[in-house]
Design a protein around this nucleic acid. Sequence first.
DNA 1: GCGACAG
DNA 2: ATCTTGTCGC
Length: 264
Amino acid sequence: MTSVRIPGDWPTTEGAARAIQDGLRGRVVLDEPGPPPGTGRVTGVDVAYDDERDLVAAAAVVLDGASLEVVAEATAVGRISFPYVPGLLAFREIPTVLAALDALPCPPGLVVCDGYGLAHPRRFGLASHLGVLTGLPTIGVAKNPFTFTFTAPATPRGSTAPLLAGTEEVGRALRTRDSVKPVFVSVGHRVGLANACAHTLALTPAHRLPETTRRADALCRRALREAVGADPGTDRGTDRGLPSGPGRTGDRGPRARLDPPDRP
DNA sequence: GCGACAG
DNA sequence: ATCTTGTCGC
């Protein structure tokens, strides 16, 4: 497992973080269909936190697209780089996720994120951000509709309904199991929405959530437990390789929520 | 003014 | 995200 250092120029304020999103948004590629489902590799990434100890652990798990067997995995641990702010999730997850992806012994192929891509107040969610930074095809599969609206998809697995920001379809509510609450799929980078949904279905043969995120979730939680509960005995005065970066943003009291969508 | 908002 | 026991169901 590798450790992460937060970049010295990492944003400290919400305004700076939003400005970065606005500056990078134009680099998202939306006109590529992306790799066909059931082929190549598909990688799940996820993150777990221990706010008390200021720790974050990320995992990247590579699956064979056809068999869904695990091909490779990697984890990374670091300090929390940003507080949770709706709309700015990427700044909390990206440094550690990038480190985990870098630690993989093979190319990730399509990356499946836990969260959103295009379905974002500024159309630049975690999946989009990660895609632009890595150049990899990415999609986002979220468990909640965030601030978007949708009508319930039909009962059978595979049914979809548009995820809407007003009248704009920013993603799709996709039923991955009969009669079970849908997941919310949106495009990240270099993948089309229909293909993103097809991938999500290919990754959900038995559960509501994609095998990629299930595997990554289990692995990052384990990595966090091990990073916390490790060797409480011998090496007292020694640190555990966790660098102290510029530090995270200070606590914020009750705050205003998301800014209204800036693209009417 | 209050509410509500990926993880 | 995280705090948490047993319980219903495939």
